[in-house]
Amino acid sequence: MTEAPARLPASRYVLFLAPAVLGCLLDLWTKSWTFAHPEQFQGKGWWLWEGHAGIQLSLNEGALFGMGQGQVWLFAVCALVAIVGIPLWLFRYRAAEDSRLTFAMGAIMGGVLGNLYDRMGMHGLTWDRFYAQREGPVYAVRDWILVQWDDRWVWPNFNIADTLLVCGAGTLMLLSFFGERDQPQGDDEA
């Protein structure tokens, strides 16, 4: 008879939930705050560092760099799959034994949740606030962070959820190339 694996420590749940919940809340709060300022609509911006970093509101009906414009529901379905699959993989199939992987997946989950909220139109925005020729509810991700080097090199607007997704994915990539897995609790050999 095989022995049941040891329970995951509570710290693994905290390592996952902290970036997921706090990241999602920070993302939704910053989007709500920035989009509450109508003077930022219609492509206008507010510079924090003149010519390089600021706030400019935009709506993205696609994914990374605006790819897949109009495929909002496809990305929403992918997000729902991730919301189920990530915790299942981490906690049922024990990938959460690695604390760094758990934290990275928590960051990814925070980004997924923040952008899914927008894709579902839960923010309550309507298109006419942005484009007079368009009507109805907005089912798009709210982006607001503007970064550019000069007028020729302008990075596509993004938000905190996007930052969480990129940092989480970057951490996963670094772990896959350079990281050794954490040793599961209780498996130390003396």
Results as ranks from 00 to 15, higher is better:
residue 121 G to M: 03
residue 103 F to L: 15
residue 66 G to T: 02
residue 31 K to F: 06
residue 124 G to M: 07
residue 98 D to G: 07
residue 61 E to C: 03
residue 42 Q to E: 02
residue 128 D to E: 14
residue 82 A to P: 14
residue 131 Y to P: 02
residue 46 W to S: 14
residue 26 L to N: 04
residue 2 T to P: 05
residue 154 V to H: 05
residue 136 G to N: 02
residue 81 V to G: 10
residue 116 L to D: 07
residue 77 V to C: 08
residue 60 N to M: 09
residue 2 T to G: 05
residue 25 L to E: 13
residue 157 N to Y: 04
residue 186 G to H: 03
residue 14 V to Y: 13
residue 41 F to M: 06
residue 174 L to E: 03
residue 117 Y to R: 10
residue 136 G to M: 04
residue 89 W to A: 15
residue 85 G to W: 11
residue 28 L to I: 11
residue 57 L to R: 09
residue 25 L to D: 14
residue 66 G to W: 09
residue 161 A to M: 02
residue 145 I to L: 14
residue 18 A to Y: 11
residue 102 T to W: 05
residue 162 D to Y: 06
residue 111 G to R: 08
residue 175 L to F: 05
residue 37 H to W: 14
residue 19 P to D: 10
residue 114 G to F: 00
residue 167 C to A: 15
residue 151 D to V: 10
residue 114 G to K: 05
residue 39 E to W: 08
residue 131 Y to F: 11
residue 162 D to N: 08
residue 44 K to R: 15
residue 121 G to I: 10
residue 14 V to I: 15
residue 27 D to P: 00
residue 157 N to H: 05
residue 126 T to D: 13
residue 80 L to D: 09
residue 82 A to K: 10
residue 125 L to P: 07
residue 65 F to I: 14
residue 84 V to A: 15
residue 123 H to D: 00
residue 173 M to R: 14
residue 185 Q to Y: 01
residue 81 V to Y: 05
residue 86 I to W: 10
residue 84 V to L: 11
residue 72 V to P: 06
residue 143 D to R: 03
residue 44 K to M: 09
residue 12 R to H: 12
residue 4 A to E: 02
